[in-house]
Amino acid sequence: MKFRAKIADAACLNHFTRVSSMVAKLAKTCTVRISPRQLNFILADKVASGGVSMWCELEQENFFSEFQMEGVSAENNEIYLELTSENLSRALKTAQNARALKIKLTNKHFPCLTVSIELLSVSSSSRVVTHDIPIKVIPRKLWKDLQEPVVPDSDVSIYLPVLKTVKSVVERMKNISNHLIVEANLNGDLNLKIESELVCVTTHFKDLGNPPSASADASHGRDPEQMAEVHVDIRKLLQFLAGQQSTPTKAVCRIVGDKVLHLDVLHEDVSLQYFIPALS
């Protein structure tokens, strides 16, 4: 098992740093999947057991100038590691304005992901900062739990409004209630709703547009006015929103009635899927 990679471009480096800090906001510990073409950040609390799950995907060649890996075996050319996301994002924060970044799988008494950052300095001598992030290598037999989640057929899918507005609305709503009702229809309407003994608050977003649906979708032939709704834990949605520091290229919300809220976000070439299970 071998892995070493290098980022030499400043823009790629900043983008990678942003991705890692987004992941750190969404998941305390995450799984990093390394394959010849892709890098994934995975959180897999099973939806069935009440947790959220996340699948973040980036093409290695869009970020790395060098990328060498050797998986556990020739037929399973992949590596799965578990690490504390905060450790990685903190290490990468020092890489802002750095000249280059190297990531390597090492074994220093215990398995590590070693991040070396070459910093610019006024004099010609360069400085290198090295972080050793402890990791746990995930054995082959557990891989099956960490596969890309199957997106269930949604009742309604809709483009999300400006996330900053959604975030401030959800933040206030969290002060009042733990449960949030998300409802949307195929007419471009999205409502966020809380109901408590003291107050009922509904925020209506209009004309958001619906992405063209695959014909196999459950939404096929649906009355455009009819709302699909899902109840979710408001803190889990807020956690997702807090992680979205920059405006995404595309953001879609899918409601699978009373089962799951699926948020599908694209930041340039990094795709993030986030699944919040419905509260019963």
Binding site: P161, V169, E197, L198, V199, C200, T203, H204, D207
Partner: peptide
Amino acid sequence: EEGGVVTVCKLN
């Protein structure tokens, strides 16, 4: 109302 987004609150 802000920017076309409307919030309705019913406070007891």
